[in-house]
Every structure is written in C-alpha cells, then in structure tokens.
Simulated scan of single mutants.
Amino acid sequence: MTETLKITAKPDTDIWRKPPTSTPSTVRRHPPPLPPPSTNPSSQRKWLKTGVELYNGSPRLSTVACDRWADWSVTPLPAAGLDPTNGLVTATVRLEASVDHHGPSLWVYGVDAAGAKESLREVCWIFALGKEGGDDAGEWEVEVAAMAARPNKEATDELEVQFSGIQVEWR
C-alpha cells in the first residue's frame, strides 16, 4: 500500500532567499521531526529544492539552489508527467554527483517515463562545502523532505498538495 502524504501551504509561503527578503514555508518531513530549514536571510544554511512547481499556470519541473542567495530554473514537465483526466502530476527527479575536467558538481535531472534524463541544473558549489574552512567546515547534514509552498501573497485559500509513491534511494 502506498502512503499518501498531505501538506497544506498558506498564502505567502516559500523557501527562498533573495536579498533582502526571505519567507517561511510549509514543510513536512517523513518521518518527522527534523529541524526546519532556516528562514533567516543571514543564515549560512545552504540548500537545494527540486520538484514540481506551478508556474504561469502550468506544472513544471523546478530547481532552486541556494548558497548565499537562491537562484532558480524551470522547465516543462515531460509529456507523460501530467494526466489531463485527473490533473495528477507525476515527476521523477534524480540528483547525481559528477566529476569532469573542472572538478566535481551535482547534476539535477528530470527523468521521463522511459528513463531518459533531461538536465535541469548543475550545482557546482555543493562539493566545495567544507573544503575551504570557515563556516562550511565540518560534517554535512543532508535532509530529504516533501514540501508545499504558496508564494502568492494575494491568494486567500490554502494549497493542499498530496504526495504518494515517494522513493528516496541513497548510493
């Protein structure tokens, strides 16, 4: 039996760090409890969020990487990712470490139903953490969480998001 995880997001919520503002989000971890992501813009916590985001009225694959400030990219869902009969969105994202002649990086991919990978983002700073001393030194704390956000400040209703079939594979 596949467990369904429901998360409700209030208006004006997101995990985002853009000078000079940052807003809280609705995050539900499974299994809870874990410490929430920092909403303090002066915090040096670094993060990556990737998944489905409603942008310009359409669900898309989205990736945000945040070292000091966040940056963002979106791309259309694979064709089989949206079922028009019920509005359900199916998405698979894969994160893979990679090394080339410039050094290590983390690649974020969208994966279609046939298993083909589409590059969404290369995050180059992730593997530099802890190598230069200072605030980044020490052990990493890696967290995988389901989240929902409703950045629209004018919205009056909450957004309910349901997750099922979540699989996290560590290698």
Rank of each mutant, 00 (worst) to 15 (best):
Met1Thr: 06
Thr2Arg: 15
Glu3Val: 07
Thr4Asp: 13
Ala9Arg: 03
Lys10Pro: 00
Asp12Lys: 14
Asp14Pro: 02
Ile15Tyr: 01
Ile15Ser: 01
Lys18Ser: 02
Pro20Met: 12
Thr21Asn: 15
Thr21Asp: 12
Thr21Arg: 13
Thr21Cys: 15
Ser25Gly: 11
Arg29Gly: 00
Pro32Glu: 10
Pro33Arg: 03
Pro33Ile: 07
Pro36Ala: 03
Thr39Leu: 12
Asn40Leu: 12
Asn40Trp: 13
Arg45Gln: 05
Arg45His: 15
Lys46Tyr: 08
Trp47Leu: 02
Lys49Ala: 02
Lys49Ile: 01
Lys49Pro: 06
Thr50Phe: 00
Gly51Trp: 00
Tyr55Leu: 12
Tyr55Trp: 08
Asn56Cys: 08
Asn56Gln: 11
Gly57Tyr: 01
Gly57Ile: 04
Arg60Trp: 00
Arg60Tyr: 00
Leu61Cys: 04
Ser62Met: 08
Ser62Leu: 12
Thr63Cys: 09
Val64Thr: 02
Cys66Gln: 11
Asp67Val: 11
Trp69Ile: 04
Ala70Ile: 07
Asp71Leu: 00
Trp72Ser: 01
Ser73Glu: 12
Thr75Asp: 12
Pro76Arg: 13
Pro76Phe: 05
Leu77Phe: 01
Ala80Phe: 02
Leu82His: 09
Leu82Glu: 07
Leu82Thr: 13
Asp83His: 13
Thr85Gly: 13
Thr85Met: 15
Thr85Glu: 15
Asn86Arg: 13
Asn86Ser: 09
Gly87Trp: 10
Gly87Ser: 14
Leu88Trp: 15
Leu88Ile: 02
Leu88Ser: 13
Val89Ser: 02
Ala91Pro: 02
Val93Arg: 08
Ala97Glu: 15
Ser98Lys: 14
Ser98Phe: 03
His102Ala: 14
Pro104Tyr: 00
Leu106Phe: 00
Trp107Gln: 15
Trp107Ser: 07
Asp112Asn: 12
Ala113Cys: 13
Ala113Pro: 07
Gly115Ser: 08
Ala116Glu: 08
Ser119Ala: 13
Ser119Thr: 12
Trp125Thr: 06
Trp125Asp: 02
Phe127Glu: 10
Phe127Leu: 11
Leu129Met: 04
Gly130Pro: 06
Lys131Met: 04
Lys131Ala: 12
Gly134Gln: 15
Asp135Gly: 11
Asp135Ala: 11
Asp135Glu: 13
Ala137His: 15
Gly138Leu: 10
Gly138Val: 10
Gly138Met: 11
Glu139His: 06
Glu139Val: 09
Trp140His: 01
Glu141Trp: 11
Val142Gln: 09
Met147Gly: 07
Met147Asn: 09
Lys153Met: 03
Lys153Ser: 11
Lys153Arg: 09
Lys153Ala: 08
Glu154Met: 01
Glu158Asn: 07
Glu158His: 06
Glu160His: 02
Gln162Thr: 11
Ser164Glu: 05
Gly165Lys: 05
Gly165Ser: 04
Ile166Thr: 06
Ile166Leu: 05
Ile166Trp: 03
Ile166Ser: 02
Val168Asp: 09
Glu169Ser: 10
Trp170Met: 06
